[in-house]
Design a protein around this nucleic acid. Structure first.
Ligand code: ZN
Ligand code: ZN
Ligand code: ZN
Ligand code: ZN
Lengths: 162, 162
DNA sequence: AGCGTTATGTAACTATATAACAACGATGAG
DNA sequence: CTCATCGTTGTTATATAGTTACATAACGCT
């Protein structure tokens, strides 16, 4: 199984994309009895403002109105909640966060991150997971969490640089 | 091919371990015309002070003598050099650095990091690399660099917690 | 309403990393 | 050997990322 999110499809209607994500989040939280409060919802929406990972402080800036800034903690708490619920993934190599297109099914998170456009494509490839699990098993290592992040150049950017 | 470093072998003589790493570094830099200066050598030695990833500021503390501290930049510059030469890997999920046991052959870096003892085992498993490359190819993505980090519990710690 | 739990506010602080510019020092050409 | 050059290091300031401690407010149940 390989699930793919295409961030920069031609004709991509991002408003719809965000609405879908927020809708799934509402439903998921409701079904779990988790509270998607106003702040958490706003942070989730801001994480989804594009398909490139967004840093906590960028979100913090987004939330400022008329010189009034929320505290970093407010954002980090919301992000912690969203990550816990699987609505958002953290990209370790960028210290940034990105919305998950498929929060209903638990999965690690494997990402291709373009160095030019900054977009991140989420994969969840069974071959990769299986290979990692096999290695861990060989070492007698019990896996909690895996981080797979690939930096490089996406198709679109490669073509446009040619 | 699966290369393994066992950080916590019983009877592991760490002095020898460090000497070996420094020797390989000397030879490698000499063969490349790269300059392993006193500072760089010291930072490499401190990275190798154990088999757990060490943060830049921890190294900075290590280097302080009688209240005299070097600047962060000094450490970061040395680490940049060491990473560039493949003598050290950066662990993204910990913002920390660890010595590479096999700097002579270029390789990404795949790590199992124990949540209890903090030790990191470096793997370089061809199955994992192949699976990732295949995914990237499927997406038309050109790979620069891959980050594979697995967090969990090592054999030793699992047994001692039992 | 009363009460425990969960979420948010506020402030100060720690940790991680980079920028800009000056000074030093090894190396090689002349 | 001397000077010019380039890579390395020093110094100071600043940017970015994340946490601790404690107070207050909202919610959800009885
Ligand atoms: Zn996901
Ligand atoms: Zn791109
Ligand atoms: Zn290595
Ligand atoms: Zn362990």
């Amino acid at each position: 199984m390989t699930t793919i999110t295409a961030p920069a499809e031609t004709g991509h209607d991002h408003g719809r994309c965000v609405d879908g994500a927020l809708g799934r989040a509402e439903a998921l939280c409701a079904s779990r009895g988790a509270r998607l409060t106003a702040i958490r919802r706003q942070v989730l929406e801001l994480v989804w403002s594009g398909h490139r990972p967004r840093g906590a402080y960028a979100i913090l800036d987004d939330m400022a109105v008329e010189g009034k800034r929320v505290a970093p903690l407010t954002v980090y708490r919301a992000l912690d909640f969203l990550v816990e619920q699987g609505l958002v993934h953290r990209i370790e190599s960028l210290n940034a966060y990105i919305g998950c297109p498929d929060p209903d099914h638990a999965h690690p998170g494997q990402f291709l991150v373009c160095r030019e456009c900054g977009n991140a494509i989420e994969l969840n490839d069974a071959r990769v997971s299986a290979a990692i699990d096999a290695c861990a098993r060989d070492q007698g290592f019990t896996v909690d969490r895996t981080t797979v992040e690939v930096r490089g150049l996406c198709t679109t950017c490669r073509n446009s640089l040619a």
